[in-house]
Design a binder for these strands. Sequence first.
DNA 1: TCAGCCATGTAATGGGTTACATGATTGA
DNA 2: TCAATCATGTAACCCATTACATGGCTGA
Lengths: 188, 188
Amino acid sequence: MAHQKDLPSTAYAILGLLTWGEMSGYDLGKLIEGSIAHFFFRPAKSQIYAELRRLVGRGFATEREVAQDSRPDKRLYAVTPDGRQALRRWLDGSEAGPEVFRSPLCLKVFLGAQMDRETLAAQVKTALLQAEASLAAFQGDEREIAGRPEFFYPNFVLQRGIAHERATILWASDVLKALEQEQEREGA
Amino acid sequence: MAHQKDLPSTAYAILGLLTWGEMSGYDLGKLIEGSIAHFFFRPAKSQIYAELRRLVGRGFATEREVAQDSRPDKRLYAVTPDGRQALRRWLDGSEAGPEVFRSPLCLKVFLGAQMDRETLAAQVKTALLQAEASLAAFQGDEREIAGRPEFFYPNFVLQRGIAHERATILWASDVLKALEQEQEREGA
DNA sequence: TCAGCCATGTAATGGGTTACATGATTGA
DNA sequence: TCAATCATGTAACCCATTACATGGCTGA
């Protein structure tokens, strides 16, 4: 009964955000951009809407049309008790899929022997600057949510992001240093 | 001319590994498992073979059938000059796709309010143990390749993996501590 | 005036996974 | 004897992205 087939984990991500409160697909998009996009996935809008329809089809969410003037009409979605149960089952289970770290930069560094040293260094430098920007943004978020109990759990994830960016910055600096040393050794 | 359509980055990953030397699809699978799988992607066997055929079709690799007795016959693939050029263009360019960190664990922690505290703690603990195992494995690799100049570039990526696992371990420990404190506060 | 926000979707494509299929050799 | 290694693929499926489509309101 209930579910013939398991949903993809992205469905549970959306279901999870809906526990935050009733929302439209558009709202979800905004919310994802500031949270889940950083540590899970950044779906296309079209996928959000498709996934919401599926959740309604499964009975995991309800849809409610709200007419607005001076704005387009919208549909608000809310989790059902069935939805909460399904989410809970998924959260408690251990088949949530693997941790994935996919880094084109690491691939390029790995294949560094195929590149000009300068070009590689430039790309590492770019990544370093991006990591610094991310870190600054995360630290801004940190100040914003500090001490707010409703962000008790999200704050853990934010801390992980901060740790990750810090590690990236240190690593990139080390790589750049090593690359320069190698350049000198060759030049001399 | 040359290429009507860009290849997906996974094709360049395989092309890059082929610069290591002539290999079969099977060999590539083994090699990926010990390298690229950790920081880029872990393709299904079927995809490796499909991607190799495409590379040959584009003229980026050559195929050579080798008969063997007491083992199945195999096909060896090697990069062509065109392939090297294409790889180089991709490496030098900046459209390599985004850095992706997809962590179901982070999603669960983010939604921690929906779970039993103990269940969440157990899952964090599991991740911690896995990170410790990965770290140990990476440190084994580190000892193996230490000082070997042909691993100059791969070593950077290994260092990143080590830094990442260390950060994960510290973070998970912090989360567990905080979760226990919260438990005590409630219990008291 | 004009970019950007609000708001929702369809259609086409394809990258990637899963399941299925085969089968000899080698070492524990 | 039995699992693992070597070795290559086909077929089906589907999650996810990209491009396309619409259109009023708001603030700089």
